[in-house]
Nucleic acid binder design. Structure first.
Ligand SMILES: [Mn+2]
Ligand SMILES: [Mn+2]
Ligand SMILES: [Mn+2]
Ligand SMILES: [Mn+2]
Lengths: 150, 150
DNA sequence: ACCAAAATGTAGCACAGGCTACAAATTGGA
DNA sequence: TCCAATTTGTAGCCTGTGCTACATTTTGGT
């Protein structure tokens, strides 16, 4: 045995810098997770019923309507949405683009989970949180994996 | 075609209640994610160097030491850790148990990601966020999947 | 033994995202 | 038409998690 390792079952800790960078990335993903869920949901509501009312958004997210309105205000601040009083919420081009990316990613994550044997209902629940932490590299790997086992 | 569906590529939206429950679960997972990362890290530091100083914890997490100290205070409030000034942080039995569960889950997620083709470095980064949203059902599926392809 | 550097702790700020309570506008049914 | 129910918006509170600045304690090298 060439390398001197204390315990094969216990991998060495990463360097401080590397570990800090991983945590920082997870924190940043978490900070955009909510916006992603909102635009995906708004896009779905627009597609399925032609409008996305703050009250509907709130009900679907399971939060108070005041909470939804505040977050929608943040979407507007960040250039992802617009809204007209009593006419609902709409997505900007940037918002639409984000919604499309997020929806694809969401589906791919659900498919991958089911492909490795996760029950459908668990897959749906877990994907809602997991999706926000899946990198493009992982997404690409998921696609390849799913393609190869048709 | 028996069912009348508008678009096969666009699955119907879940019911309001089901969707709200999913989002609620994701929110709750997110609220414990930070605690999980702290106890796992503290456990690693204790195992590898015998002590876990707030400054080390902060450096590894990439946050200011004041931030780490505050979160450690929350760990203590929640019965996961204790600390003696200038002697570092220690885990309670509950904290140790949580750390062990979290470490196993973290490794399993990394292994699963690599097994489906995600590059090792991406797997490590993504797992840091994903792990907190993986249900027991999914974990069991991951284990089975990994076992079956030895 | 002492003092400077490092570590630790505290205080106070900002912002996000929950909540409830209340106010105002709109809508639709009688 | 008009009023009550619904929807929307606002205000103010709390908690969590970042930050910086400053104070205190401990430690270690001379
Ligand atoms: Mn989601
Ligand atoms: Mn989603
Ligand atoms: Mn993590
Ligand atoms: Mn982890």
């Amino acid at each position: 045995m060439a390398t001197k390792s204390k315990d094969l079952a216990t991998p060495a800790m990463p360097t401080e810098a590397a570990q800090a960078q991983r945590f920082e990335k997870a924190r940043s993903a978490q900070s955009t997770a909510l916006l992603e869920d909102y635009v995906e949901l708004i896009s779905d509501l627009l597609a399925s019923s032609g409008e996305a009312r703050p009250t509907d958004v709130a009900r679907r997210l399971g939060v108070a309507h005041a909470t939804a309105i505040k977050t929608i205000a943040r979407l507007k601040r960040e250039g992802l949405a617009t809204s007209r009083p009593y006419r609902g919420v709409f997505l900007t081009e940037a918002g639409k683009a984000l919604a499309d990316r997020v929806r694809l990613r969401h589906r791919l994550v659900v498919d991958l989970l089911m492909a490795v044997g996760v029950p459908a209902d668990s897959a749906e629940v877990d994907a809602e949180g997991i999706e926000h932490h899946v990198s493009d590299a992982a997404l690409a790997a998921f696609r390849d994996f799913l393609a190869q086992r048709g």
